[in-house]
């Protein structure tokens, strides 16, 4: 079912159709919030609030084709508001993925170690760079879309993206070289 149809059904009062939107967009939006907020619990709460706001304001969405971008705008605004209210709840190296039994094999542990390192390095990036990297890599938005969403220029989006990747690569490459 195409997005416009799903949204039309939700607006017509079919709450089940909203479940379709949840299933489609929940994971990527949650991943974004996890990159912006340190605590899983915060990300879960903001995600829940994002969906409720989206439901309440769905009739205001002009172009159903831009639902994901619109949803992300709500999520980013709520995450920023949460960060302003509780600054220490911004992205920080804490609350990382706990290795489980199935993670115990060597390759997986190595990847977890890299992910943990990446999380720390991401935490050190300026917020704007983090947002741009997330929107570009995970949501595959174009720089024009990112520029609209974050109210910056396309050039600024590109510059933030390339600078962030360079910093991450240098940091990860450097630490990887130091590791035995």
């Amino acid at each position: 079912m195409d997005e416009s149809e799903v949204i039309a059904r939700v607006l017509a009062g079919e709450r089940e159709a909203f479940h379709v939107l949840l299933q489609r967009h929940n994971a990527p939006v949650f991943a974004t919030l996890r990159r912006l907020l340190a605590q899983r619990e915060d990300a879960r709460e903001v995600l829940q609030e994002t969906w409720l706001r989206a439901y309440q304001n769905l009739a205001r969405l002009r172009d159903p084709g831009h639902f994901r971008t619109w949803l992300l705008t709500i999520a980013l605004n709520l995450a920023r508001a949460r960060h302003r209210r509780v600054p220490e709840h911004g992205l920080a190296p804490g609350d990382e993925h706990e290795p489980s039994a199935e993670d115990a094999d060597g390759g997986r542990l190595e990847e977890l170690e890299e992910l943990s390192l990446l999380r720390r390095r991401m935490a050190e990036l300026p917020a704007r760079q983090r947002e741009v990297v997330d929107l570009r890599v995970n949501h595959e938005l174009s720089h024009a879309e990112i520029a609209r969403l974050l109210a910056i220029s396309e050039q600024a989006s590109r510059a933030n993206y390339y600078q962030a990747l360079k910093r991450l690569k240098d940091a990860l490459g450097g630490e990887a070289r130091v590791r035995p």
């Binding site: 909203f18 949840l22 994971a27 949650f30 991943a31 990847e111 992910l115 890599v137 995970n138």
Partner: peptide
């Protein structure tokens, strides 16, 4: 690096289910 960024912070299925259930309950 790009693929690591993609998998990093990937949510767990049960976590998403919990959020979906909470949202639908609130709705």
């Amino acid at each position: 690096l790009l693929s690591l960024i993609r998998v990093f912070s990937a949510p767990r299925a049960e976590e998403l289910e919990r959020v979906s259930a909470a949202v639908l309950a609130r709705l």
